[in-house]
Write a protein that binds this DNA or RNA. Structure first.
Lengths: 204, 204
DNA sequence: TGCCCTCTGGCAGTGACTGCCTATACTGAA
DNA sequence: TTCAGTATAGGCAGTCACTGCCAGAGGGCA
């Protein structure tokens, strides 16, 4: 594991981060232009002027070129703590609200670009789902006394599922609403349960 | 698509089904013995006395050798209808109860064998998750007036997530409980929501 | 400046997966 | 029973994602 405390950036790490952004940019361009399946890693590497080996070292898989988000670690790790608290849904809502509030318009544009690509290509959507479940597994593991309890498993998985459903809806709806709006409504649904079909049938 | 009505079995289809069972059996044996990653498709094909090409034609992917369940189509397609009704959770509960009740001990043993393998190898668990989400996508698509609604997306995804959590807990708990027990409790959690942490902290 | 060491690049390999074509087995009618 | 017509399995060769391994280039620090 890296380390939990934020260390001074490191001049070498900056180059890596810059390269990752350059590679992701090139990849998004190519994928949007020719389609995900018709672009080889070698092509992406050539466009970003790095070796294919480096692309794999940085991103691990082709799909991660689209999934990867620099802020991922920062936004997701506090989530772990929320699940242990007394009001996990409220805490999650607040954490996500803060996360979206901290985003610039450029950030949001980049996310929309990536999400559009994700739901245009099933293979990438698959990778996103797996990525989300890896997170959920980490979250469950981080709640020691409750990790093996069915209730924890179901809650965490349902939350991940709900979040994925919200993102999917956000994209399939042409990004009409603000993403936090979707997440928020998903959280409300999880909060109150699906007992009453009218809760599902009529928006708040 | 095949067809929705049950046609006479077809003598050719029987041979295929028998071959699939033979291939899956051989695959499970080999995966349990040597591990999923250390068995090539070629080996499985040789053990089942079919060509590797046929294995792919039947199962589509290596992971599907473990995931595949003959009853899958039969148990899952009625689920689609349940989501459209007034009391989807109740209908789901009943459908799943009936499904498990119809299972023989041999069926259950096979499922335990497959699930144990699934959670021993992340790659197979990944495939299971994706398989489940493909089903959920089909389900959402089958609820025409509600398919693009956020509430439907979230509900279906949360249900799938909850079910996956329940199965995961079932396996990680050493198959101590009956699987329907786990699913049932998961449904109850979804039904009542996660408002009250005590609902998560204390079993019914 | 010089030593250490991490990181990048190239190489070669593995194995999952996929068209394409031929042989073969099944199906339905003469 | 036999003969078309059709669907299906096998074999071949190819693509490409992904992975160790090793040598070289470049930062980090004295």
């Amino acid at each position: 594991m890296d380390s939990d405390a934020a260390e001074p950036p490191g001049l070498q790490a900056r180059k890596k981060l810059a390269a990752m952004h350059r590679i992701q940019d090139a990849a998004l361009d190519l994928f949007e232009e020719r389609g995900f399946d018709d672009v080889a890693i070698e092509t992406v590497a050539a466009a970003a002027e790095v070796s294919p080996r480096t692309v794999y070292r940085y991103f691990g898989s082709k799909e991660m070129l689209v999934i990867w988000d620099e802020e991922d670690e920062f936004t997701l790790s506090p989530l772990t703590d929320q699940f242990a608290g007394a009001d996990p849904i409220g805490a999650l809502r607040e954490a996500l609200r803060a996360g979206f509030a901290a985003m610039s318009d450029a950030d949001l544009r980049l996310i929309r670009r990536r999400v559009a690509l994700i739901y245009r290509h099933p293979a990438i959507e698959a990778a996103l789902i797996l990525h989300a479940y890896e997170k959920s597994r980490a979250i469950v593991a981080a709640v020691p006394e409750r990790g093996d309890r069915l209730e924890t498993q179901v809650f965490v998985h349902a939350f991940i599922g709900g979040a994925l459903g919200a993102i999917r809806h956000w994209c399939l709806n042409g990004f009409a609403e603000h993403p936090y709006e979707c997440i928020d409504r998903a959280l409300t649904l999880l909060e109150h349960g699906f007992t009453d079909p009218r809760k599902r049938a009529t928006p708040p």
